[in-house]
Simulated scan of single mutants.
Amino acid sequence: MSLFDDVAGAVMGKVMGGNQGGMAQIAMEMFNQHGGLNGVLDKFKQGGLGDLAASWVGTGANLPISADQISSVLGSGAIAEMAAKFGITPEVLSTQIAQHLPSVIDKMTPNGEVGADSGNLLSTVLGMLK
């Protein structure tokens, strides 16, 4: 793991309210695989859940998402691969992502909008450090 991954993982842990470091690593992996925040949001738009994801970015209440919806949007193969990497089952991983992703994206977009550089994970993480 690189120094950036260590720092980014620590920041994601803080953003997630001090939840386990493993979840922060999972979030980092997901954002890296899908091109950062913009890429993840695009996946949800393409999967027909753009309105749901928009609630996480906006300043209102975050709409919930199910583990099945996570698997559908991100792909069961990608979920299985990521789960194996972290030594958990795909079901546990998709449940954890469903539980934490709305809050993570909400905290990454405190002004209710995705910044122009949000596709760059390094810029996003550095912005959180300010």
Rank of each mutant, 00 (worst) to 15 (best):
S123K: 09
P110R: 11
V104F: 15
E81D: 14
D6Q: 10
G9D: 03
M28H: 13
M12R: 02
S55I: 03
W56R: 06
G112V: 03
A53N: 01
K43Y: 02
N32H: 13
G47I: 10
L3N: 04
N19E: 13
G35R: 00
L122W: 08
N120V: 03
V92R: 14
L122Y: 15
G75M: 08
I79G: 05
Q96F: 01
L101W: 03
I97N: 08
V73P: 07
F31D: 06
S103L: 13
F4I: 09
G115I: 07
F86T: 09
S76I: 05
L122T: 14
F4D: 12
A54G: 12
G35T: 06
L122A: 11
F4A: 10
T109C: 15
G47Y: 13
V125C: 06
V11H: 08
K45A: 07
M28Q: 15
G18H: 00
G35A: 09
A67Y: 00
V92A: 15
I70A: 10
D68A: 15
A116M: 14
A80Y: 01
E81G: 14
W56D: 00
N38E: 11
M23K: 04
S76V: 12
M1R: 09
A10I: 11
N111R: 15
S123L: 12
K43D: 10
L126A: 12
G60N: 03
Q25C: 02
V11G: 07
G50I: 00
G35W: 09
L126Q: 10
G39L: 10
V104G: 05
A80F: 06
V15H: 00
Q99M: 10
S76Y: 06
A61V: 03
D42R: 12
P102N: 05
F31H: 01
G17L: 03
Q69N: 06
A80P: 02
L93H: 02
Q46T: 08
G75R: 01
T109Q: 04
Q33R: 14
L93Q: 02
M28T: 07
G48H: 05
M30Q: 08
L63T: 10
L52K: 15
Q20H: 15
D42H: 11
G127P: 07
G112I: 04
N32V: 10
N62Q: 11
T89Y: 00
V104W: 08
Q25G: 11
F86C: 08
T89L: 02
G115N: 13
F86H: 12
Q69I: 07
V15T: 12
G47V: 10
S76M: 11
G119I: 03
G39M: 01
I97L: 11
Q99N: 13
I88V: 13
G22A: 07
I105H: 04
E113W: 12
F31P: 01
W56Y: 05
G18C: 07
S2D: 14
S72G: 09
Q69P: 01
K107G: 05
F44I: 02
A10R: 15
E113Q: 13
F44N: 01
G48K: 08
F4H: 05
G77P: 01
M1H: 05
K130H: 09
T109K: 10
G119A: 03
E81N: 14
L122Q: 14
T124W: 04
L129K: 02
A8F: 01
M128A: 12
F31Y: 07
G115C: 04
S123R: 05
K130Q: 13
M108E: 09
G115W: 05
H34M: 07
M28F: 03
V11D: 14
A8V: 01
I105M: 13
